[in-house]
């Protein structure tokens, strides 16, 4: 690829990414009433999308071969238990990550 072709390729990726981010705001501008259905989606979507993001983190984990996702499952258990117990965001994340790193580096 020439430099110009590279610039165009990156430019197209920027354009596509920004289109997915800006499109809802262009279709439903703040100065016009948003349809009730879209308002409803705006209220119920965030929880669902965060659920989607949680699952997204496991997209490259193989549950049927290798370690069957065992390090990931144990890591999730540590994060969830610790968080429900202490409700300290940084502690849950730091301890869960260190635990997972120890598992994949030394145990599995």
């Amino acid at each position: 690829m020439t430099i110009t072709q590279q610039i165009i390729t990156v430019g197209v990726v920027v354009l596509g990414t920004m289109l997915t981010r800006f499109l809802p705001f262009f279709i439903f501008p703040a100065n016009k009433p948003t349809p009730v259905y879209i308002q409803y989606l705006g209220k119920v979507l965030p929880a669902a999308v965060i659920g989607l993001l949680v699952i997204y983190c496991f997209k490259d984990v193989s549950f049927i071969s290798g370690q069957h996702g065992l390090p990931e499952i144990l890591g999730v258990l540590v994060v969830v238990t610790l968080h429900l117990w202490k409700r300290n965001m940084l502690l849950s994340i730091a301890a869960g990550t260190c635990f997972y790193m120890a598992l994949v580096q030394f145990v599995f």
Binding site: I8, G16, T17, T20, R21, F22, P24, I38, V49
Partner: peptide, 23 residues
């Protein structure tokens, strides 16, 4: 560039939901 554009839309389609949630 055309296939790069459509691939980007597919990979980033979830942003549409973020936008609707943040209107």
């Amino acid at each position: 560039p055309l296939s790069a554009f459509f691939l980007t839309l597919m990979v980033n389609a979830r942003h549409l939901f973020y936008g609707i949630s943040m209107l």
